[in-house]
Design a protein around this nucleic acid. Structure first.
Lengths: 227, 227
DNA sequence: ACTGAATTTATAAAGGTTTTATAAGGATAG
DNA sequence: CTATCCTTATAAAACCTTTATAAATTCAGT
């Protein structure tokens, strides 16, 4: 439930909830749902969503009051989705603390874009995918690798090789496959390149290059990262 | 000019500018105006507005390109005001970095409320647009950089390059990407430009230009700022 | 299971090539 | 005219490839 991309939908219309659930799920968000104001308030507290989509026309509590209550403690984005299109309602909602206001019927693409805006603003910067193996950390999007938090000086080829093996942790990769992926189709038979580079990598990555724990060799086949 | 509640309007329609000027002034904002994209970009740099209202239909540069250029350094809210109401335009603008999107004709009360939301949010996440790296400070909105509190004399290209790398601290940026961002799409293969400017920057920024600690080279790939 | 030969692997080190750093002069725009 | 950018030239550094040799592993025949 405490997913980092969880969105809470508070809306009494089953059809809308269903539409949003499908659309948002398809775009990688996890969904929580509530059909009343009371339920919505309690779910916001328990599921800690990164964003709330709130309908103003709820059966029990007025939407603006729900918004006000939420804003007493909930600091992340709230997007209003409502049939009420009067300027007065919009201004009120925005001034109480909504981040955005869309009138039904809405365009799903636009809603998704506005959700991205809201989340972007509330988060600032997002983290990148990092492969971690004990003292070794490989940051694929930054093209950097660290051992004991110290930046390793790897050449481009060395990094490609390390990343390829690490991405396939535990799997044996054949010489040919590695050569094809790192050097290109024309180098499938240059097995010696691979040996030279593996040795260089081990010097930089392993605690004891003579007894490798990460870059393991499978004699006659290829190499394997980790266990 | 450097009023704390200065709003910049970039719109070629005189009537709209006049309407906004009256409305916003009546609500306590100071106004700067520009009628072309080029003028808007330079005014954004000089008048440092807390918020920018941008029309997409400008006579000289496409509004989306103005938005993109602004977002290279301008971190405060940008609200789009446009006659274009297609979902595609809205999504594009929001994803490029707009905070909100209103279609003309708009309701002034709603615009005012959305301005309040935007300013409220930008103050909440009051990130100063100054990047700090030890003795080096880079002020994105002023287009200035200081080393040991002394202003560095950087050309516009040098600053763009430094800012781009600094904004992506720790990440390896490829030659092509840097050339595209700083010089433009047509310069992707002019790697030597980059080398020349990196050398110049290192002379100004590094303690020992021969042993760079900030502007690191990743041979065969590109450059990386910091560790 | 042991031995020795054959195969495969590890590693250092020596060219050779590509990439980078830097200075300096010419071109250009404001 | 001046600041900035572009271009060229050349030396230095980094990187890749190749070679050589020792070590490890596999395997066949006993």
């Amino acid at each position: 439930m405490l997913s980092p991309d969880n969105i809470l939908i508070i809306d009494d219309e089953h059809q809308i909830r269903r539409l949003l659930e499908i659309t948002l799920s398809a775009n990688g968000y996890k969904i929580s749902e509530a059909s009343t104001g009371k339920e919505g308030l309690s779910m916001a507290a328990t599921s800690q969503p990164v964003l709330i989509i709130l309908d103003l026309g709820l059966p029990d509590i007025d939407g603006l009051d729900v918004l006000k209550k939420l804003r007493e403690w909930y600091l992340k984005p709230i997007i209003i989705l409502s049939v009420r299109s009067s300027e007065e309602d919009i201004i009120k909602a925005l001034d109480i603390g909504a981040n955005d206001y869309l009138t039904k019927p809405f365009r799903t693409g636009e809603l998704l874009a506005r959700i991205r805006v809201a989340i972007r603003q509330s988060q600032g910067t997002s983290e990148n995918p990092v492969l971690n193996f004990g003292s070794l950390a490989i940051d694929l999007s930054n093209h950097t690798a660290r051992k004991n938090n110290e930046l390793l000086k790897l050449t481009s080829t060395e990094f490609s090789l390390l990343a390829l093996l690490a991405k396939n942790e535990g799997r044996v990769l054949t010489h040919q496959y590695i050569l094809k992926e790192v050097w290109g189709m024309g180098y499938i038979e240059q097995t010696q390149y691979l040996r030279v580079f593996i040795a260089q990598l081990r010097k930089k990555v392993e605690d004891d290059p003579a007894k490798p724990k990460m870059l393991n060799t499978e004699s006659g086949i290829g190499y394997r990262f980790g266990s």
